[in-house]
């Protein structure tokens, strides 16, 4: 137990401080090379550095490799490889605008190392009811899981700090659930993701100094999905991610198809006092932000806090789900 506590502390420190220290240098480098985008919701339309995925992937790889040094298992290796491949997919999308189907298909390939390394258990554990073994179906689930978690986190990366703050809360909740289930090795892996996203949030929160870009958002999502698979906590991970899944569900049920986010109409408008309100455009998608501002316009910061409170709520549901895993009806 003492070894695990020392590892957890060391991995958390490396995860947090690698991103915390590298990101300011990355911001300067990106600004110098004019790799900036306009933040339309900000007064004066400030230019913000992008993509921040580089510091995020460095944080993930550094911390997970430290964990691998203490617990050399294929599970940790699978997380590192999947995250790295997702970063490559994201950086391609950051540099060149790809079609709506590019990310889901490319992310599906990122799941292949998990299958090749055999870092999964071909069954699903459900609270209250038990375990169901689904060998063939589970392979499909692994291939679908990474695109789903990757695109789900990417789809909530719409306002300052949301993607990193949300990932941080969901990862800490998943980590708590894994500790409850005594899966310490993967709990520490999830803790690392939580600290990486927390350190990035420091620069991503309103007013953002850097955006994660597709490379950052996909690393957040794919790492989270890989942890869920190798930790055998797919259902709990889905519960912790419910507000983001809800956002994707609302979006898809209103748009009826997968489209690249740059092609969609803005579901919100910016008022003169820099508050976001819900648009009345019938062709614009329904999203969680549109619902939150439907009653009255809110500032970007206020919307962020509403979403974080929702993330904490679903995180609590995830931990409850972990406790229910040992209960049978």
């Amino acid at each position: 137990m003492e070894d695990q506590i020392i590892t957890a502390v060391l991995v958390s420190i490396v995860a947090f401080f690698s991103v915390f220290v590298i990101t300011p240098f990355l911001i300067k480098y990106l600004e110098k090379r004019n790799l900036v985008v306009k933040d339309y919701n900000r007064k004066g339309g400030a230019m913000v550095a992008r993509p921040g995925g580089i510091s995020i992937i460095i944080g993930v790889i550094a911390s997970e490799l430290i964990l691998y040094a203490f617990f050399p298992s294929i599970h940790i290796l699978a997380i590192v490889i999947t995250s790295s491949l997702a970063f490559c997919v994201g950086i391609v999308d950051d540099r060149k605008v790809m079609g709506g189907w590019f990310k889901p298909v490319a992310l599906a390939f990122c799941a292949i190392p998990i299958l090749l390394l055999g870092a999964y258990d071909p069954g699903l554990a459900f609270p209250l009811f038990g375990f169901v073994k689904i060998p063939v179906l589970y392979i499909g689930l692994v291939i679908f899981m990474i695109p789903i978690t990757g695109n789900t986190i990417n789809s909530i990366d719409v306002l300052n700090g949301i993607a990193s703050g949300f990932t941080s809360i969901a990862s800490f909740a998943l980590s708590a659930a894994l500790f409850v289930m005594q899966n310490y090795e993967i709990a520490i892996a999830s803790l690392a993701l939580g600290f990486v996203s927390l350190a990035f949030y420091r620069y991503h929160k309103f007013p953002s100094r850097i955006f994660p870009g597709d490379s950052g958002a996909l690393v957040f999502g794919a790492t989270y999905g890989a942890i869920a698979i190798v930790g055998h906590v797919e259902v709990i991970a889905a519960v912790a991610l419910l507000p983001a899944i809800m956002n994707s569900f609302l979006f898809l049920s209103s748009m009826k198809k997968i489209v690249e986010h740059r092609q969609i109409k803005n579901p919100t408008f910016l008022s003169d006092d820099y508050k976001l309100g819900a648009t009345h455009d019938k062709d614009a998608p329904t999203t969680i932000v549109r619902l939150i501002v439907a009653a009255k316009p809110l500032t970007e910061k206020e919307i962020g806090f509403v979403i974080f409170k929702l993330a904490i709520f679903s995180g609590i549901l995830a931990v409850i789900t972990a406790f229910l895993m040992d209960v049978r009806i």
């Binding site: 699903l124 459900f126 609270p127 209250l128 009811f129 038990g130 375990f131 169901v132 259902v235 889905a238 519960v239 419910l242 507000p243 899944i245 809800m246 969680i288 619902l291 939150i292 929702l310 709520f313 679903s314 549901l317 789900t321």
Partner: peptide, 20 residues
Amino acid sequence: VYVFVFAMWLLILVGGGLMV
């Protein structure tokens, strides 16, 4: 929105139960 998230959670539990 909280009600909707809670409904999603319940549906996951019920759907999982049906699977098992």
